[in-house]
Design a binder for these strands. Structure first.
Lengths: 266, 266
DNA sequence: ACGACCGTGCCACCACGTGGCACGGTTTGC
DNA sequence: GCAAACCGTGCCACGTGGTGGCACGGTCGT
């Protein structure tokens, strides 16, 4: 929720103040809809009149709308989603991956994630929630550093080693928990194991109680374009299950790769 | 879609010019990504320097990014999608409807649509493409007037008759094809048939060669919140198939309604 | 070698967005 | 019952932030 993108802006306030504020408002509305003027102005530390002008403007432009019952509280329209769903290549990948995701969901009963790499992070594109009464909580659109997730490691293992090393070395690695490995050398070595097994495992590296198994989906020249993964509580994931789930995920991901036109031979 | 905003949008220019332009740019980028500065400035009839400032700003704010290979052409990031996927209630509906959609897709082989009503229009929320080599082309996020689609008629038939009449009478009904019915009385009468059968059929009312069958998904107080529909070429949809597909769609929609807590007894 | 593109950068001007403030209505507290 | 504290709304003088014309260097196609 709030902790995802720490307000690390403040450095580049030089460009387009009003636009920056407007998009911030749009984001804030999406997080706490339906929301009123005052609540919003407090949350964003904005003058109330400014906040209202933003809401009115975004409303006129068709991005948000007042609820029919509560005409002073605003929510998103489908416009933002319409824009977002045009994200390049997303449609094709989703279409191909969904059946495989349902298969994994059916055989394991756990939450299945479809993610894509973006810069030095991995972004959750879609998910199918598991049936267990206790599950991991995630949100479509959220992202995490590559080295903190199973999906991220699967991606790193599937790209050219030099590129993986460059990505990991570009900036100091963040530790999200005590179990997050932040040593580049150690991670690069772990990636060899991932390549050997065909899947990556992460236990408590992003959140103390959450574990995951992931495998990369490869496209044309053998490059990773997405990942499939299972996300589940660490308690429900003893080491003996690693290869069980791991191989299922790897098989599902390979099937997606094949449909994308990339046949992993060896 | 060049003709959208001709130079003189004069009515609402009073509010937040730069924001309006920025969101317009965002939308334009989503439609023609990856796109460069000059192409964009031409398409939006904007000074090149302004267009570039917008792109840089949107980039700094994380909504778009330059392609790694072509550093001067911009595409969307997943941010817009992250925002859009928080659209109220969408997540729950998608989660419930997806299995039913796959069922329909498997038994019919046709493209399955999940749509939601918004104002006087019906918006495509998600879809599963069929297997036929010739299919209807649609895009998630696109919308159409209620009275031009099977989904829209299913929604109208499921809401209180007074509300349906109010929606239809609020403004003159647009005719998208020769087959679009624009007479309010005639449509209201057709809705009775929809209620009796449990599904709506539309042939050539939105596009000459496209047909559809749809049924509404109802939530708590019996109100329509979404629809399931099949979209297919008219040629592949002879009248004898109407009840076949119609009842399948209605059954799938009813199952979704039940999971939303609304049991259609009578 | 030329012109027609491209993406980039600068900067004087003044429209545009800003935000403090006040109003009327409704909910809360006592 | 009243007052205080909220709410959403609207106004408007101020000055800053956005505008867009213009020019530059690079890279095509011819």
């Amino acid at each position: 929720m709030t902790g995802a993108t720490l307000r690390s802006d403040r450095s580049d306030v030089n460009h387009m103040r009003s636009v920056s504020v407007a998009l911030g408002v749009l984001e804030a509305v999406s997080e706490r809809q339906p929301v009123g003027v005052s609540e919003l102005s407090r949350a964003m530390q904005l003058p109330k009149s400014t906040a209202q002008r933003m809401l009115l403007t975004l409303g006129e432009l068709g991005w948000i709308r007042a609820s029919p019952e509560e005409p002073t509280r605003w929510s998103l329209t489908t416009k933002a989603q319409a824009i977002g769903s045009r994200h390049r290549g997303q449609e094709e990948i989703r279409h191909i991956a969904l059946p495989a995701m349902h298969g994994l969901s059916a055989t394991t009963g756990e939450t299945v994630h479809l993610s894509v790499p973006e810069d030095r992070r991995i972004v959750l594109l879609d998910k199918i929630e598991g049936e267990h009464p206790v599950r991991t909580h995630t949100e479509v659109g959220r992202s995490a550093p590559l080295h903190t997730t199973a999906s991220g490691k699967a991606v790193l293992a599937a790209m050219p080693p030099a590129q993986a090393a460059a990505l990991l070395g570009a900036a100091p690695l963040e530790a999200l928990t005590d179990h997050t490995d932040t040593d580049v050398e150690a991670i690069l070595q772990e990636l060899e194991g991932v390549r050997r097994h065909g899947y990556a495992v992460a236990v408590g590296t992003r959140h103390p109680d959450v574990a995951a198994v992931g495998a990369a989906i490869l496209s044309e020249p053998g490059q990773p374009v997405a990942t499939l993964s299972l996300s589940l509580p660490s308690q429900r994931f003893p080491r003996r299950l690693w290869p069980v789930y791991g191989e299922q995920v790897a098989r599902a991901a390979a099937e997606c790769s094949r449909q994308l036109g990339w046949d992993p031979l060896p």
